[in-house]
């Protein structure tokens, strides 16, 4: 009765914030520790090369100008394969999201083909698309097509039906409804689909460049692995990682631009 106590605070937590500098610091600390361990002989070169050796391998690529050859070859394949996969995938996703016949016809096909590891089909791809750019682009195409289809039709399905009814109640044309209501409504889902499909494309780059590729980051990584040149392997893998980060950054920018309305 008489005792006066402050009410203890029980809220808070469960709200992780991102703290800008921590990420880079973690990277710097990890890499320094790795370098130090290599120099002190705690990590033998057989197990893992020192970061400085990987950096030297990268420098060599840069100096000889081969970096550009590898990078341009891979980027070209990525852009062509991903763009085609995305265009066809978004169209198919819209068809599934809008038309009953397409949904009934395409959905089972998509579900059946999505889980097939595209690498398993490589020998067939060689026969169908040749050992030139065809089979490489095809690998990336199939890798990006399926996740894009699924993200797109899920996005179309998720568009608020009241908004569509609203459009109809104002007598908007079918095409206007698709363009101005369904497309922007599905856009957030489509963009997160892009994030996934772009990562898959980068992951598949190594597989795509297994087939008769002279240049390409994937081919470089493969060769490094075959030759047990672990310094080049780490340099190549780091480049793939940087490619992934760059694509992620670009998609974030696109999201900020296209989804400004979400705040």
């Amino acid at each position: 009765m008489s005792e006066v106590r402050p009410v203890p605070f029980r809220g808070g937590g469960f709200r992780p914030r991102s703290i800008g500098v921590v990420g880079p610091i973690v990277f710097v600390v990890l890499i320094s520790a790795w370098e130090a361990a290599s120099r002190l002989g705690l990590i033998t070169p057989l197990v893992l090369p020192a970061p400085s050796e990987a950096a030297a391998a990268f420098w060599e690529l840069l100096e000889t100008g081969r970096l550009w050859l590898h990078l341009s070859a891979s980027l070209q394949r990525l852009v062509v394969g991903w763009t085609l996969g995305t265009l066809v995938g978004v169209s198919a996703g819209f068809a599934i999201g809008l038309f009953s016949l397409a949904r009934a016809g395409l959905m089972p096909v998509v579900s059946a083909l999505f889980p097939i590891p595209k690498i398993a089909l490589l020998p067939l791809f060689i026969i169908w698309f040749g050992i030139g750019e065809g089979s490489k682009v095809a690998t990336l195409f199939f890798g990006t097509f399926f996740p894009t289809v699924i993200a797109t039709y899920a996005g179309v399905d998720g568009v608020d039906r009241t908004l569509i009814r609203m459009g109809q109640s104002f007598g908007l044309t079918w095409w206007s409804i698709v363009r101005k209501i369904v497309l922007p409504g599905a856009l957030p889902a489509i963009l997160s689909g892009f994030r996934i499909s772009a990562s898959i494309a980068i992951i598949l780059l190594v597989a795509a460049e297994m087939i008769g590729a002279e240049f390409g980051i994937g081919a470089y990584v493969l060769l490094a692995g075959n030759l047990m040149a672990t310094d080049q392997l780490i340099a190549g893998v780091a480049m793939l990682s940087v490619m992934g980060l760059t694509v992620g950054f670009l998609i974030s920018r696109a999201e900020r631009l296209l989804l400004r309305w979400r705040g």
């Binding site: 490589l122 020998p123 067939l124 060689i126 026969i127 040749g130 050992i131 297994m210 087939i211 008769g212 590729a213 081919a219 493969l222 060769l223």
Partner: peptide, 18 residues
Amino acid sequence: LPLQKVGAIIAALKSGQV
């Protein structure tokens, strides 16, 4: 032309691509 797998090389040889 590095094709990784013997199966892939045979496929490419049979179809005349290598």
